[in-house]
């Protein structure tokens, strides 16, 4: 495959993890400006595991995912009692705290004569497992796509088992949800754990593709983008956030001639979409219509 296309598609895949992560929380009724923190945690943890400790790639991915989920739940445990702006800013504070801590986090070991590991603000280079294993970019893209598909299938399964419906109820009206016998706090913490896990997995994949990560990559801007993807694409289904990513990365990569005006075009486009469809392109109204049509 064309290397340019491969890299664009890989980027779309990686951002999709982040967008899905923010979307899960949006469904649960909260905005998180801080999902980039779990992306970073996944990236660093899996990078350390494979590059410094020499663990196999799959185990490193699992570690990134698990750590993302665990820390997500741990942060949500106090934060889920907040809501609205408070929750949004609390998540942002945690993410910036994570980034600022990575700026001073040093953990380097001598691996084959090279100092390897995170080096504070200088970043973390030589996460080379994928290259040393001789995995081609095309193959790696397939790995990303497969794992992304796995996440989407899991979400779809959750929807079949009414899990998503209960999360949506918590998101729409936590008190009314409580009156239906739903354990609201548990759902909120559960959603945060799932979202942390998805972001952690994405971060782990990102680190192994880029081979180099640095704290500055996980800034507020990244987190706000992740939220915006879901809001543009629509909150009705898990396809929404992917559509958001596709519009941003895909459309604008293809308009290379407009590269200098990229954000101006994208910003204007998004503003217009949101005026016409305030709950995103694939909103609940559309999804409900399609469902009822499919049921006939």
């Amino acid at each position: 495959m064309d290397p340019f296309l491969t890299s664009v598609l890989s980027n779309i895949g990686l951002f999709s993890f982040l967008a899905l992560s923010a979307w899960l929380l949006l469904i649960g009724g909260e905005i998180s400006f801080g999902q980039q923190a779990y992306f970073a945690i996944g990236a660093y943890a899996s990078g350390i595991a494979s590059a410094v400790w020499g663990w196999p790639f799959a185990v490193a991915l699992a570690l990134g995912t698990a750590l993302g989920a665990g820390i997500g739940a741990l942060v949500a445990w106090p934060a889920a009692r907040l809501s609205g702006v408070h929750y949004a800013i609390a998540t942002l504070a945690f993410a910036e705290l994570t980034r600022a801590s990575l700026n001073v986090f040093r953990y380097q070991r001598d691996i084959d004569g090279y100092l390897t590991g995170p080096d504070g603000a200088n970043g973390f280079r030589d996460i080379r497992w994928v290259y040393e294993a001789g995995i081609a970019p095309g193959t790696y893209l397939a790995i990303i796509a497969t794992l992304l598909l796995l996440v989407i299938v899991l979400i779809w399964l959750a929807a079949r088992l009414n899990v998503m419906a209960q999360l949506r109820m918590v998101g729409e009206d936590p008190i009314l949800a409580g009156m239906q016998g739903i354990r609201v706090l548990r759902w909120k913490i559960g959603a945060a754990a799932a979202a942390g896990g998805v972001a952690g997995l994405g971060g782990a994949l990102f680190a192994h593709m880029a081979t180099y990560v640095e704290p500055a990559q996980f800034s507020v801007m990244t987190g706000v983008h992740a939220v915006a993807y879901g809001l543009i694409g629509g909150l009705g289904t898990a396809i929404g956030p992917l559509l958001g990513v596709l519009i941003d990365v895909g459309l604008l990569e293809s308009l290379r001639s407009l590269a200098a005006y990229r954000m101006i075009v994208f910003g204007g486009l998004v503003a217009i979409i949101l005026i016409l469809r305030p709950r995103g392109i694939l909103d609940e109204t559309l999804v409900t219509k399609v469902r009822s049509w499919a049921r006939r």
Binding site: A165, R168, M169, E172, D173, I175, L176, A177, M179, R279, E284, T288, R291, S292
Partner: peptide, 14 residues
């Protein structure tokens, strides 16, 4: 089971 005042339904669900 409660039918509360004012907040009756989940508006964005069918």
């Amino acid at each position: 089971v409660t039918v509360p005042e004012n907040r009756l339904v989940f508006p964005d669900m069918s």
